[in-house]
């Protein structure tokens, strides 16, 4: 009898708790890690040289994506285009733009030769900042899925394959929220977090947005320079984490031109050109 009671009393001890392993994926180094950096063309930041079309900067990412900044107007607004690049010696072939040549062995002033596909060859001075490689987040990421959560009468969420702005805007409107009227008819192709602390959001149409950011632990603070792409978040803070081998980037905030607040979560995998 005593044995039976003891058996019953010990039964709960037989069951162990289920544990979920913490995610800490070990990604291989990005293919263009050694070439990554930012070239800022010298003498182009004064009002006198706000010539539309004039080159301002070239960002070369760890994953073989480049972003070129040019003045879009005489007010100093910068518009960016993005694409893929390849390297041969000191020559960097920027798809859809042309070739640039420089010695990237050390930071500081470099002599930069620019040979656009269309136009004249130029020789200019630029300042090279090489990318820091200390964080596995510093690379380009493919946006595989986007989860949008909006607060309203009830807080609701929806998942979207990739990140198509129109699709997300339709979801917001169908559920009683305002969405910006100038939502572009395309989506995000990739998000790069570079070792020069630049966030490059490359779009399907070849355009891009660049923002500076700083990474502290798993918190990203960024400055948003976008004036045209609709979903601007007023809270310039994001959180990065890893789950099931994916990188999860969550941005909380309020959408511009709307009373809607909520969050956008991107599920991302290392960029494959």
């Amino acid at each position: 009898m005593k044995k039976l009671f003891l058996t019953l009393a010990l039964l709960p001890l037989l069951f162990s708790c289920e544990t979920i392993p913490e995610d800490n994926p070990d990604y291989p180094d990005p293919a263009y890690l050694q070439y990554a950096g930012r070239l800022t063309l010298n003498g182009v930041t004064t009002k006198a040289v706000y010539t539309p079309g004039r080159l301002v900067s070239i960002e070369l990412t760890e994953s073989g994506i480049y972003a070129i900044g040019r003045y879009a107007d005489e007010l100093g607004t910068i518009a960016y285009t993005a694409g893929a690049y390849t390297v041969s010696g000191h020559d960097y072939r920027l798809s859809g733009f042309g070739t640039i040549s420089f010695n990237n062995s050390q930071e500081g002033f470099v002599e930069l030769t620019i040979k656009p596909d269309e136009g004249y060859q130029q020789l200019v001075w630029a300042t090279l900042k090489k990318a820091d490689s200390s964080n596995k987040a510093y690379r380009a990421w493919n946006v595989e899925k986007t989860r949008v959560t909006v607060k309203g009468w009830r807080t609701i969420s929806a998942d979207f394959i990739g990140c198509d702005f129109k699709e997300i805007a339709d979801f917001l409107r169908a559920n009683g929220h305002k969405a910006p009227v100038d939502v572009p008819d395309h989506g995000i192709r990739s998000i790069s977090l570079t070792g020069t602390e630049t966030m490059i959001i490359a779009y399907d149409d070849g355009s891009a947005d660049l923002n500076e950011f700083s990474l502290n632990g798993n918190v990203i603070k960024y400055t948003w320079s976008d004036n045209m792409k609709g979903f601007t978040f007023e809270t310039e803070k994001a959180v990065i984490s890893y789950m099931d081998g994916k990188c999860i980037l969550t941005i909380n905030g309020k959408i511009r031109d709307s009373s809607t607040s909520g969050s956008v979560t991107f599920m991302m995998s290392p960029y494959n050109p």
Partner: peptide, 16 residues
Amino acid sequence: SDYNTVGLDIDGYLVK
């Protein structure tokens, strides 16, 4: 049909 795409996010898990 909206319920197939829209749901509640509870601690990072979407219930729909």
